[in-house]
Amino acid sequence: MTTQNELRLLSWAGPEGRPCYLSADEQNGYMSRLADHIEAMQLGMASELLEHALQALDDEAAADEGDLSLLAAQLAGALRDVLRVATSRGNRLATPEYP
């Protein structure tokens, strides 16, 4: 039986927003590499979105209320993804054993 700390939290949600986990013995297996690739894409998209948000905030005259509302929703989604990636990676860090 696989314990919770042996499961990898994936950076996307399943049906109804529930977390998805990967049970894989190989860190370099196909599914683990796919999860790594998707995490990298999510982090890259969040970085690009942050740049776009900073530009929109600098040019207040060009951004209308609808644009800012959409931007806020996209930022919230990106933040959710980044936090899930950070949590997943934190869970996979080796924890030191103290005497």
Rank of each mutant, 00 (worst) to 15 (best):
E39I: 11
E26Q: 13
L49Q: 03
R33M: 03
A24N: 03
E60P: 13
Q27R: 07
A78H: 05
C20F: 04
M31F: 10
E39M: 11
L50P: 01
E51V: 10
E51C: 07
L68D: 03
N28F: 07
V82H: 04
A62F: 12
N91Q: 13
G90A: 15
Q55V: 13
S47T: 10
E48V: 01
M45L: 14
M45F: 14
A76K: 09
L70Y: 00
L57G: 12
A24I: 03
E60K: 15
R33A: 07
G29I: 09
S23D: 09
A24P: 01
L71C: 05
S47K: 02
A62D: 14
L43K: 05
N91D: 13
H52C: 12
A86R: 03
A62T: 14
D25E: 15
D36C: 05
Q55I: 14
L71I: 04
R92T: 09
A62Y: 08
Y21Q: 02
A76R: 06
A78M: 06
E48S: 10
M31A: 08
E65I: 10
E51K: 09
Q55A: 11
D59Y: 12
E26H: 11
I38H: 09
A76I: 08
A73D: 00
A73W: 00
G66T: 04
E60I: 15
D58F: 15
E48A: 09
A78V: 11
M45V: 13
N91L: 14
E39S: 09
A56M: 12
A35D: 02
E51M: 10
G90Q: 14
L34F: 08
A24R: 01
P19S: 06
E51L: 14
A46C: 11
A53Q: 06
A53I: 06
R84G: 05
D58E: 15
L83E: 14
S32H: 01
H37K: 07
D25P: 01
Y30F: 12
A78E: 02
S88E: 11
R92Y: 02
R80W: 07
Q42D: 14
D67E: 06
Q74G: 01
L22M: 04
M45R: 10
D81M: 13
I38G: 05
S88Y: 03
R80P: 04
L49A: 05
R92M: 14
E39Y: 08
Y21I: 03
A63W: 03
L68M: 12
T87Y: 06
D25C: 07
L75V: 01
L50K: 09
A53H: 04
E65D: 07
Q42C: 11
V85E: 02
M31E: 08
E39H: 04
L70K: 00
Q42Y: 13
L50M: 13
M45T: 12
L22E: 02
M31K: 00
S47D: 09
S23L: 12
D64N: 15
Y30S: 05
A62W: 11
G90R: 11
A86Q: 12
S47M: 06
N91V: 11
A40K: 00
L57M: 15
